[in-house]
Design a binder for these strands. Structure first.
Lengths: 224, 224
DNA sequence: GACGGAATCAGCCATGTGGCTGATTCCTTC
DNA sequence: GAAGGAATCAGCCACATGGCTGATTCCGTC
């Protein structure tokens, strides 16, 4: 954004992708594709030469993948913002990319408008994320606030546990106290205590924390 | 986005703000301001009437604040995306807004271009966040994913666990008692208690069970 | 109808836990 | 050398937790 035109570098090992995005972006009056790279190593070099405003970065690339390339580019301190391109929405790499310092990411099947808007947004210093990713980040963050969340869990009896006990175990694994469970299940706290005690005995555990761990390890509840 | 024009509702108790944004946005050929609201309650009603694509939502408003209004609008079903407007970057409300289901937020001093781009982005289903917020979300997320930090995150404050604290958190998530951790780490139990307390405070959790749950959810430890 | 399991509830009690205050020793940074 | 963060430790206190005993009600099964 040296003057008003956003200078973009496209890094992708597939020629078709580079060409396609290049045409789409050059059609925009305020965006100019200044260079391309076919792998991460080349991307890092090109950024050094061309000092683009935005780098469209594919993740899967030979030589140096998009994650590492992003890390180097961001660390290099240039004003260059990295917009990561992914094929899959829930790609595990997305988090790595964000941690590496990417300003956001877009799906490869984004429309011309979405692509252009995305480039403009990260160029302006904002971050662009798919809602699913944001939701997940927020979910994690929400846990910090200690707000216990409820989710409809199919009743599946585990081993020796009765349905009710399994139900209680799930609630334990969501961090609820005995009082909170009593309220949730509409029973007395003493009843909950009985269930908890029986769960511990049956599973051979010592305390509710171990019960929570057990629930996760047994896939009774799953992260995410 | 029923046809191609993005229909926007502006909710802000200050007339000047409403007018300003309205003029800026209506200047865009693809954006149309279809209504205004002076408080949260009215915003919810207007959304029901007008079914806008995007709601520009101020946080501080009489009657019903932006957070609650956002919650109602998002819960209402609606295809309406909420773009929250804030005055301060690190506004605590930002997180509440995101948890309430907002698609993103913008600073009130955003340029016309940023504003328009932001509206288009959230209308297209993406999320828009200021880098500082994203960084913080990612910091939380990655700190707890065990990946060593390499970005200079001068800011501490809310959720930065120290190495030792992270170590203790992992042990908690393995079901160890304070006494057991003390033995394992070769320190006094009182020291362990201090670490545990600080972890709970920093993460905003109540007890060790929630800490264990958090560790799993944050992928600090994984099942199997 | 008897039997047993499941769910419900109430006490009592020892203690692990978490909050709070205050302190010391290393470090690194300014 | 001052300042501040991190790790260490101690004591006190309120309370949730977990173990134990004993009880009632509602089921389905034999």
């Amino acid at each position: 954004m040296t003057d008003g035109t956003i200078r973009v570098l496209i890094a992708d090992d597939q020629m078709m992708v580079r060409e396609g995005f290049s045409v789409l972006l050059n059609a925009m009056p305020d965006i100019e594709v200044v260079g391309e790279a076919v792998n991460g190593r080349e991307a890092v070099d090109r950024v050094r030469e061309l000092a683009p405003d935005v780098v469209l970065m594919d993740i899967r690339m030979p030589e140096l993948n998009g994650i590492e390339a992003t890390r180097e580019i961001v660390a290099a301190d240039g004003a260059a913002k990295v917009l990561v391109l992914t094929t899959f929405d829930l790609d595990e790499y997305v988090y790595q990319a964000l941690r590496a310092g990417a300003s956001g990411f877009l799906l490869k099947d984004a429309s011309a408008r979405q692509l252009a808007d995305g480039v403009r947004v990260v160029a302006s210093g904002e971050a662009l994320l798919a809602p699913s990713v944001t939701r997940r980040l927020i979910t994690e963050f929400s846990k910090l606030s200690g707000t216990p969340r409820l989710m409809p869990t199919a009743h599946a009896a585990y081993g020796d546990l009765t349905d009710r006990e399994t139900e209680v175990l799930v609630l334990i694994a969501q961090g609820l106290s005995n009082a909170e469970m009593a309220e949730r299940l509409v029973v007395a706290e003493s009843t909950v205590k009985t269930h908890v005690s029986r769960i511990l005995v049956k599973l051979g555990l010592r305390d509710r924390t171990q019960a929570a761990v057990f629930a996760y390890e047994a896939r009774l509840v799953t992260p995410g």
